[in-house]
Computed example of a mutant assay.
Amino acid sequence: MAELHPRLLADTRSLGETTFCWIRWMNDQRFAWLVLVPKHDNIREWYELDADEQHELLDLVNRCALHLQSLTGALKMNIGALGNLVPQLHIHIIARQQGDPCWPGPVWGNGAVVPWPESGQPHWIKPLRERLSYRCA
């Protein structure tokens, strides 16, 4: 059974999941930021998934980006699968606003993370969960 990489577990919180993928949000108040993680061990690259899983992941990325942009009014959606520090395949979906703390540069490695209080979460979590029809596991 696949397990979530410890770094992803530490840096993110659960939004929900499908049978194929964990849907998590980055615990950083500065950005509306999702991380999608296919439930596979030892998969680093998108092309290592079988064709059906590649399409399922693309569909989920597109749905999450569409709804996150709609809920946040983001000017630009950044989508990437870097994996340089965390080898487990994971896809970042970040809603960017002109004037956000890192605009127009990348968010990775820029500035200090501003975590949410233990009981806090972004305003867009509940409506996004409803739009995606997933409940937090």
Rank of each mutant, 00 (worst) to 15 (best):
A2H: 13
A2Q: 09
E3D: 15
H5Y: 01
P6S: 07
R7K: 12
L9H: 11
A10P: 01
D11Y: 05
T12E: 06
T12M: 02
T12N: 11
R13Y: 03
S14F: 07
G16T: 07
G16Y: 02
T18W: 09
T18S: 13
T18D: 11
T19S: 14
T19K: 13
F20H: 13
W22E: 05
W22Y: 13
I23L: 15
R24E: 10
R24M: 06
W25E: 10
M26H: 05
N27I: 09
N27A: 12
N27F: 06
D28M: 07
D28R: 09
R30L: 05
A32Q: 08
W33E: 02
W33F: 04
W33D: 02
V35F: 05
L36F: 09
K39S: 04
K39T: 01
D41E: 06
D41V: 00
N42S: 03
N42W: 01
R44D: 10
E45C: 05
W46P: 00
Y47K: 07
E48D: 12
D50G: 04
D52H: 13
Q54H: 02
H55S: 15
E56N: 12
L60C: 02
V61A: 03
N62V: 11
R63M: 11
C64T: 04
A65Y: 01
L66Y: 13
L66D: 12
H67Y: 08
Q69Y: 03
S70W: 08
L71T: 04
T72S: 13
T72R: 08
T72Y: 10
G73C: 10
G73F: 07
A74F: 10
K76R: 14
M77E: 03
N78L: 08
G80C: 05
G80H: 05
L82H: 06
L82Q: 07
L82I: 12
G83S: 04
G83W: 00
G83K: 01
N84T: 03
L85V: 15
L85I: 12
P87S: 04
Q88T: 07
L89S: 10
H90M: 12
I91D: 00
H92Q: 10
H92Y: 12
I93W: 01
I94A: 02
I94F: 00
A95L: 03
Q98C: 04
G99E: 10
G99M: 06
W103S: 04
W103E: 06
P104Q: 09
G105T: 09
G105S: 08
P106Y: 03
V107Y: 03
W108I: 14
G109K: 12
G109W: 10
G109T: 08
N110R: 13
N110K: 14
G111F: 10
A112N: 13
A112H: 09
V113S: 10
V114K: 12
V114G: 07
W116R: 05
W116A: 00
P117Q: 08
P117F: 02
E118W: 03
G120F: 02
G120D: 15
W124C: 09
W124N: 01
W124R: 06
I125S: 00
I125R: 01
K126P: 00
K126H: 07
P127G: 01
P127V: 00
L128F: 01
E130I: 00
L132G: 00
S133M: 13
S133G: 06
Y134C: 15
Y134V: 15
Y134T: 15
Y134W: 14
R135M: 11
A137N: 15
